[in-house]
Design a protein around this nucleic acid. Structure first.
Lengths: 199, 199
DNA sequence: TATGCAATGTTGTCAGTGACATCATTCTGC
DNA sequence: GCAGAATGATGTCACTGACAACATTGCATA
C-alpha cells in the first residue's frame, strides 16, 4: 500500500481503533468523527462510507468490545476443571479477567451496556453479548458436572455471576471506591458468590 | 410568580427535570442545552447561569440521582430486623428497590456511574454515592447483629452486595436479557448472595 | 425607604460538528 | 480491458456549546 493512495486501505479498522482510544481518553461525549477523519488523514466525509452515522460507529465499538471481552474470558478459563479447587480457580480467573477488562477500558465497557443502540445493530450486539455470557455458563456447568457446586439452572446462575462481575467491574473502574482495593473486592465477590453456590 | 416575568423563578430545577426526562427518552448524547432552554421558555444562554457547561448539568443530574436512589433504598429498608427472616427480607427489599430504580431510569443510573465527571464535581458525587452504599452497609450490619449472617468486614460485604445489585440492575435494564425475567434474576441474585453470607 | 450590587435573563456571535448531496478516483469481477 | 461497485473528496447546512456584552430584577443594608 503506497503512502499516499487515494484509498486509505483499512479506514474502518483505523477509525475503530482511534475511536476506542479517544473515548477512553476523553469520553464518548467528546468523540468527533471529523477529528477521527483528520487523524486518519482522510476527508471529513470519508468515515460515513464505513459508518452510517456516529451511532453506527459506537455500535460497532460496542460489538467489538464484546468480542474482545469474550476472547479475554475464554483465554482466562481454558481447560475443564477436574477438582473443586480447579473449578473455583476458573471462577476466580473469570472474575479477574472481567474486572481486568473493565479497568483497561472502562468507557468501552459502559458503552457496551449502554442501552441507546440503533435497532439495526441490536441483533449483532445481543449475539456478541450472549457469547460472553455463554462463557460464564460454561464455567458454571463445568463446576456443576464435577459436583464442585450445587445444582440449579446454570443459565440463571451464570447471569447472576456475570452481573456480579459486571457490578464489581463498574464500581472499581468508576473511581467511586477508595477504601477497598479492587483486587480485594473481586476476591470477596468471588468468594461470597462461590459460597452461595455450595451444595 | 407572574406568568411572564423576566426571571423564570426556578429555572435550575426546571432544567434538571427536563434534562432527566430527555436523557431517558433520547439518551445523553442527544441532550441539548438549547432545546432545554426553548422548552423552558428562556433564552439559549440562560441555562449557563445555573450550569457552567453541559458537563456541569450532567454532574448535577448524577448527584441528584444518587440522592434519589438513597431515598428509595432508605424507604425500602425501614425498621431494624429482629429475626433472620426479617433480615433476609430487608436484603431482598434493598435489591428490589435498586433494580426498580434502574428500570425506571436506566440512563440516569448509567450516568451516575459514568466516570466522565468534572473534577470539581467529584467530591459531591462521591459523597452522594457513598450515602447509597452506607444504606447497604446498614442492612448488612443489622443482619450481622442478630446473627442472621456470619461475621466479616461489613463494608466489604456491603460493597459487593451493592455491586451485585448494580450489575443485575444494569443487565436487566439494558435489554441484554430476554430469557430470564428481571424479577427472577433479582431473586436469584439475592438468594445466592445471602447463602454465601451464611455463618 | 432608597440604592447599589448580585443574581438572573437576553441578544449576538463564533467555531466545531454531524449529516447529506454531489462529484472524483480506484478497485474488482467478468 | 471495461463497467460498475467501493471508497474518498468537496461543498453546504442547520444545530450546538461556549462566550462576551448588555438588560432587568431582587435584595441587603445604610
Amino acid at each position: 500500500m503506497p503512502i499516499h493512495s487515494y484509498h486509505h486501505g483499512d479506514l474502518r479498522r483505523t477509525l475503530l481503533e482511534a475511536a476506542a482510544a479517544s473515548i477512553e481518553a476523553n469520553g464518548v461525549e467528546a468523540l468527533s468523527l471529523r477529528q477521527l477523519a483528520r487523524d486518519a488523514g482522510v476527508s471529513h466525509a470519508a468515515p460515513s462510507r464505513h459508518f452510517r452515522d456516529k451511532q453506527a460507529l459506537l455500535d460497532a465499538l460496542a460489538e467489538d468490545g464484546f468480542n474482545r471481552l469474550t476472547v479475554s474470558l475464554d483465554e482466562a478459563t481454558q481447560g475443564a476443571p477436574t477438582t473443586p479447587t480447579e473449578a473455583r480457580q476458573r471462577f476466580d480467573d473469570l472474575a479477574r479477567s472481567y474486572v481486568g477488562f473493565a479497568l483497561a477500558q472502562p468507557t468501552l465497557l459502559s458503552l457496551m451496556f449502554s442501552l441507546k443502540h440503533a435497532p439495526s445493530a441490536r441483533a449483532e450486539l445481543l449475539a456478541a453479548g450472549h457469547a460472553s455470557m455463554e462463557l460464564t455458563m460454561r464455567v458454571v456447568v463445568a463446576a456443576q458436572e464435577i459436583g464442585a457446586i450445587g445444582p440449579g439452572d446454570p443459565q440463571r446462575i451464570a447471569l447472576v455471576a456475570f452481573a456480579t462481575f459486571h457490578g464489581v467491574a463498574i464500581l472499581t473502574s468508576g473511581g467511586l471506591i477508595d477504601e477497598v482495593p479492587a483486587a480485594d473486592l473481586v476476591a470477596t465477590a468471588s468468594e461470597l458468590f462461590w459460597n452461595g453456590l455450595q451444595p
